[in-house]
Design a binder for these strands. Structure first.
Length: 831
DNA sequence: CCCCAAGCTTTTTTT
DNA sequence: AAGCTTGGGG
């Protein structure tokens, strides 16, 4: 055997080996979390090439993110050598489609310079469409229309079909908007994300010669994360592979795990993986159940959660690595409290367990939750990095800068041109813009073409009416500036040079430089960052054009920005972004019904099942240590609201969990203060006697499931006020609550040892039955004291808020600003 | 046409 | 709480 082949298959377990060497029939690899999925995929490609069964150019590998693609390339490069992989396609669905569409633009009926619109651009265009088509944007918000159009495209529904299927008036409006939007999109020589897939399918279906060309080329198609493909992507795969009846069909390998399907909201359908054997009757299926990532405790927790989803193919992850540490649980009073626990644990792990910051990840359900964690990290001096959130490429200044470049590359790009027409301000307001738009509509040309008619009237269309002399001249100048950029691009100037030109020439940089808004300073920094991205790109790809760079930039994802080997920083991200990653230590935060599972999923069993898969993904990211935390109250838009424990916590066998704190202060007070237990105690999880495992869960299950759905608005109570009001208010609220949140009602009676006894952060005031009324702990400070803060300087304490260890001081600093600071953390010193 | 202030929506998750 | 849109005044 070839030594390269030997090296590739060495160390694979029997199932992995079979998956790697399988030949012929379509192959489905059902790969549980951490079962070596990526390794199988990479090894299979390596094996195909090393064994001579395929040439590199015959391989198309689809990954979920650009980062995954990059990693796969790197691995293959070291296994096979750099030249072997040059002709191979390893990319995301979207990148692969762009590549196909750019070269098949003739079949598509578009110019190859088309712009790719992101969701934001698409919404802007939809808004323009609504205005022009007189669609009532109150009854039909552009945002929602845009989303629904996206859904339609993911299902390959054309505007005509949508119109045919429209039963009610609402769907008719949608179909109308869709059709008009699509016309505008084409006129702007642009495609949105969903178009990229749908149009590629279109081209392949309607042009047999084109389809044939790609089928001959790609003899082996491999798709990762198959459970997250949508209808359009499925059809794309089918179109590229060909069917068994075609004599030149390729070999298909898909890898996935139905339990990790978390993108239904963007059209992904679990059906694709579940029905693979139906779609391809001769298919071979291989199960990978041995996990090489996590401890058994973590896997048992994951299994416990996912077992509650019905109708799944049974699968049980196992490992031979032993139980490992127990899962650590913590019930916090607030999100600040929760974050404080995370901080203290990270400190402890660094001291006692040799864990470094880079080993730790903190997950949350929604991006908004990162704030509380960040605040505490900043105060504690823990270095961290947030992945996602307000994405770099969605920042206003970045979108503006890129709009200039898009307008240069694609003179018909309506959304980009209209975005920058008066940015920076040039005195071209809504009125002039509207005049150009009218002209464009009147002659059925793009906005960009109409804009050219202002200074340089088209022989047939004539000049644009309704524009003043001054505006006219400004517009002509604007057009000629873009034209100069275009000339640069055509002469082959580097992307960073054109960016430079556009930002200087347009006055955009001057606008920021002369601004006294402090935000504009960071905008300049961001633009400098963008510039260096362009420089790097040019260095790495000397022959690439501006359009190439824009393509790359248009298709980056959050996960892509995760640099490898960030040793010195804790990573913060949503669970969605965390998919496919792993960390020695993982904190899954916000495990509350209403947060995770998300509020909007609680009424729909299918959505709840997806949330559960999301929880499954979250816990299976952990290699050695898993923390699960929840906050009894959390600020969600403005005011703090109470949240009951996540039902997912209950689905983890309690024997696996070491509760550092198992009850919130409010719950403890409520429980000890009430005369009877009839109104139920909120926070207490199952008591020790319930720790046995599954039997109990079956009993709890229906109760949990029958919950009416949590209605947070009714329960919104200021937590601090609540505490001050004490027992009575607590009892009243408890009664109010039990109906809505019976997920947690009436189970535990006793306080666990952990809650009653543990020192440090866990021992909140009021946690024990004897704690009496809560009082602020002012750490020896008093109102009126002068203090000094590490970064804010000198100040005076104006007031105290909160109680016990959650006491905060309101401090007015010499700068004039007033801050609320948690005394437990704030570096405040009395002077 | 531009600026400012009041008021209103926003929280899923993302290629 | 914050960012964005809308409306009135300059």
């Amino acid at each position: 055997m070839d030594s390269r082949v030997q090296r590739i298959v060495a160390g694979l377990n029997p199932q992995q080996l079979e998956a790697v060497t399988h030949s012929g029939a379509p192959l489905l690899v059902v790969a549980g979390a951490g079962s070596g999925k990526t390794r199988v995929l990479t090894s299979r490609i390596g094996y195909l090439i090393a064994s001579g069964r395929a040439a590199p150019g015959q391989i198309l590998a689809i990954t979920f993110t650009n980062k995954a693609a990059r990693e796969m390339r790197e691995r293959l490069e070291s296994a096979l050598g750099g030249s072997a992989i040059r002709t191979m396609w390893v990319s995301t669905f979207h990148s692969a489609c762009v590549r196909i569409l750019r070269s098949e633009h003739d079949a598509l009926g578009m110019r190859s310079t088309f712009t790719i619109y992101d969701a934001q651009d698409a919404q802007r265009l939809m808004k323009l469409v609504c205005r022009e088509e007189n669609i009532d944007i109150r009854a039909h918000p552009p945002k929602s229309l845009s989303r629904r159009v996206s859904d339609l495209k993911n299902d390959l529904v054309t505007p005509e079909q949508a119109a045919d299927d429209a039963a009610d008036q609402d769907s008719q409006v949608l179909a109308h908007a869709y059709a008009a939007y699509q016309i505008r999109l084409r006129q702007a020589n642009a495609m949105d994300f969903d178009d990229l897939i749908m149009s590629t399918v279109d081209v392949l279906r309607s042009h047999p010669d084109v389809a044939d060309h790609y089928r001959r080329r790609f003899r082996h198609i491999l798709v990762d994360e198959y459970q997250d493909t949508n209808r359009a992507q499925y059809e794309l795969v089918r179109a590229l592979t060909g069917t068994a009846e075609d004599d030149n069909h390729g070999e298909l390998t898909v890898v996935g795990d139905a339990d990790q399907s978390i993108y239904a909201f963007r059209g992904a359908t679990i059906r694709n993986i579940e029905d693979f054997e139906k779609d391809f009757p001769e298919a071979r299926t291989i199960l990978l159940e041995q996990n090489y990532r996590s401890t058994q405790s973590i896997l048992s927790a994951a299994n416990g959660i996912i077992a509650n989803n019905s109708g799944r193919r049974p699968k049980r992850l196992w490992t031979d690595r032993g139980d490992g540490e127990k899962i650590v649980g913590y019930v916090a009073d607030s999100e600040a409290d929760e974050s404080a626990f995370v901080v203290s644990e990270i400190d402890r792990l660094r001291d006692d367990a040799g864990i470094s910051y880079g080993d730790v990840a903190v997950f949350y359900r929604t991006n908004a939750q990162s704030r509380a964690v960040e605040d505490m990290f900043v105060r504690s001096g823990i270095p961290y990095r947030v992945i996602g959130g307000t994405r770099f490429y969605e920042r206003r200044e970045i979108k503006d800068a890129l709009a200039y470049l898009h307008a240069i590359v694609n003179r018909d790009d309506t959304v980009s041109i209209r975005r920058i027409l008066n940015m920076p301000k040039r005195g071209l307001g809504a009125k002039s813009e509207e005049a150009v738009a009218m002209h464009a509509a009147r002659w059925d040309v793009s906005f960009g073409a109409a804009l050219c008619d202002v200074g340089d009237p088209h022989p047939e269309r004539g000049p644009v009416s309704g524009i003043g002399k001054k505006a006219s001249a400004t517009m002509a100048g604007f057009v000629s500036m873009l034209e100069s950029g275009r000339e640069m691009a055509e002469a082959g100037a580097a992307p960073d040079a054109i960016l430079d030109f556009a930002m200087e020439e347009s006055g955009y940089l001057d606008m920021l430089r002369s601004s006294d808004d402090p935000q504009d300073e960071s905008r300049l920094e961001n633009l400098a960052e963008l510039h260096s991205v362009a420089v790097d790109f040019h260095k790495a790809n000397p022959d690439a054009t501006l359009a190439d760079w824009l393509d790359q930039v248009s298709l980056v994802s959050d996960a892509d920005q995760l640099a490898d080997g960030d040793e010195g920083e804790v990573t913060l991200m949503t669970v969605h972004t965390a998919k496919g990653l792993e960390f020695p230590v993982v904190f899954v935060t916000g495990l509350e019904d209403g947060t995770f599972p998300h509020m909007r999923s609680l009424i729909d069993p299918a959505e709840l099942a997806e949330e559960r898969r999301l929880a499954y993904v979250a816990v299976t990211r952990a290699r050695q240590r898993l923390y699960i935390t929840r906050a009894a109250a959390r600020a969600s838009w403005g005011a703090p609201q109470e949240f009951p424990p996540s039902r997912f916590i209950e689905e983890i066998p309690d024997s696996l969990i070491d509760w550092r704190r198992s009850e919130s202060s409010a719950d403890a007070m409520r429980r000890s203060g009430g005369r009877t237990g009839t109104w139920g105690s909120g926070g207490r999880r199952r008591s020790e006697s319930f720790g046995g495992g599954y039997g109990d869960e079956l009993d709890d299950g229906p109760v949990v499931g029958s919950g009416k759905g949590f209605v947070p608005g009714k329960l919104g109570v200021d937590a601090a006020k609540q505490k001050r009001r004490g027992k009575q208010a607590g009892a009243a609220r408890g009664a109010n609550r039990s109906g809505a949140a019976n997920a947690s009602a009436g189970v535990g009676e006793s306080v666990s040892d952990a809650a009653a006894g543990s020192p440090g952060l866990g021992a909140a005031d009021g946690a024990g039955p004897n704690a009496g009324p809560s009082v602020p702990d002012t750490y020896g400070l008093a109102v009126g004291d002068s203090v000094v803060h590490k970064s804010f300087g000198r100040g005076k304490i104006v007031a105290f808020e909160g109680t016990g260890r959650n006491t905060t001081a309101r401090v007015t600093f010499s700068s004039g600003q007033t801050k609320r600071l948690a005394l437990r953390f704030a570096p405040l010193e009395k002077i």
